[in-house]
Design a protein around this nucleic acid. Structure first.
Lengths: 220, 220
DNA sequence: TTTTACATACATTCTCGTATGTATGTAAGA
DNA sequence: TCTTACATACATACGAGAATGTATGTAAAA
């Protein structure tokens, strides 16, 4: 077997991950065998076992490839929330939608996690990781809503914790529906239209509006 | 093999479905074999194959068992929307959450569909059916929002179609998060708290409030 | 020369669909 | 009413294919 350079080996690894993404989306994780992935990549299972311990390891690596993008989104939220929390939250969720819909890899991996795998048994560790991520997200959002509350931006009766949970649920739901049936919920424009009522309910007046948005009434 | 009465056979069939629900939730659909289900039910695979053509058929029958409950929910929405659409919508979504969280079978089946299976390949027919259901749901909600609009209940800039999509997404997200981590989003109370801001944003004033709810500010 | 990045071979297990066996329910006939 | 023939509701056995993990081979990089 022709030995490869380290660069080439790294390219093989990426090719395997890219191929896995494609097949996992098409056929589901369970029904995609390592032989399927190897063949589609023009390699053999030996290559997969060289780079990854097993299917779960391959799947985990695939998921980890998109993590940095989400860290960056929350970093940005935190920075902007120090100035105008409500507007920061509006920008954040719009960026989240734009990121998910605008990056093919992120779209694929999020789609696979949500619709193409069963995170139980050996995959449970990934499920636990997802829950952690969800809780971190909720924490970030809650802190931004708390900051908004201190500035008097929250509408009467709105609690940061619940507002955060609701927003998280709304975004999750929008993404989920979009993944299932993209034509029924064209993003990102339709996402903005779905998010507006929530922001109208949670904040006072239009403190959450971005100067670039103009009036949402006109955009709808 | 002892032949059974029709009643007993029907009981066997139900037992198989119940057992499948339990195991599908625990282990995922793919990783639950028909032999697993048969053994857990104290039967053999022969019994499964007598009642169902294959695993997909069993899975389909399991899903169909919860359909009537959802038809009833939308029938009620339609009837109540004729009187007060906004309030009808509020009642509807609260009933949806109560139904999903209050019926063990519905919880299980919804959980399995959302988190424990990969609806591709042979399961695609079920996926198509889900999409249809989602579209019917969207239609129901849109019509209720249109009725609300005709009565001047919608806030300025809100379109029925988008309001319906957003509400659908919000409920879906709430249920999804609850299924994943019930302790993080205790339903139904927390669901109501997450839904209130959306209703506040979508409707004018408190036309959506149910007389039994009192002021949501107090409940939160 | 040693190590690496694969390819290939081997062995095992699992799951499925189908065929066959079997005891009993049920309906029809005597 | 009893008997019989058929159908039923399972249990068991068979065979085939698929997928996995591990061991081994190999040519080239380091």
């Amino acid at each position: 077997m022709v030995r490869r350079t380290r660069e080439e080996a790294e390219q093989t690894r990426s090719l395997l991950l890219d191929t896995a993404e494609t097949l996992f989306w098409e056929k589901g994780v369970s029904r995609t065998s390592l032989a399927d992935i190897a063949q589609a990549a023009g390699l053999t299972r030996g290559a997969i076992y060289w780079h990854f311990q097993n299917k779960v390891d391959l799947f985990t690596a695939m998921c980890q490839r998109i993590e940095p993008s989400f860290f960056a989104l929350f970093d940005a939220l935190e920075a902007e929330a120090a100035v105008n929390p409500a507007r920061a939250l509006w920008r954040h969720v719009n960026r989240v939608l734009a990121t998910i819909t605008g990056d093919a890899r992120i779209t694929r991996v999020i789609g696979i996690i949500n619709l193409r795998c069963e995170l139980v048994g050996e995959m449970d560790a990934i499920q636990v990781e997802n829950e952690r991520g969800q809780e971190r997200c909720h924490g970030h959002l809650t802190r931004a809503f708390e900051a908004a509350q201190r500035l008097g931006q929250l509408s009467a009766g709105t609690t940061p914790c619940h507002a955060a949970a609701g927003l998280q649920a709304l975004v999750k739901g929008i993404v989920h529906i979009w993944l299932l049936t993209p034509r029924n919920l064209p993003l990102p424009d339709c996402g903005t239209a779905c998010l507006s009522p929530y922001f109208q309910g949670v904040f006072v007046g239009d403190c959450w509006l971005d100067a670039d948005d103009g009036a949402p009434h006109d955009a709808l």
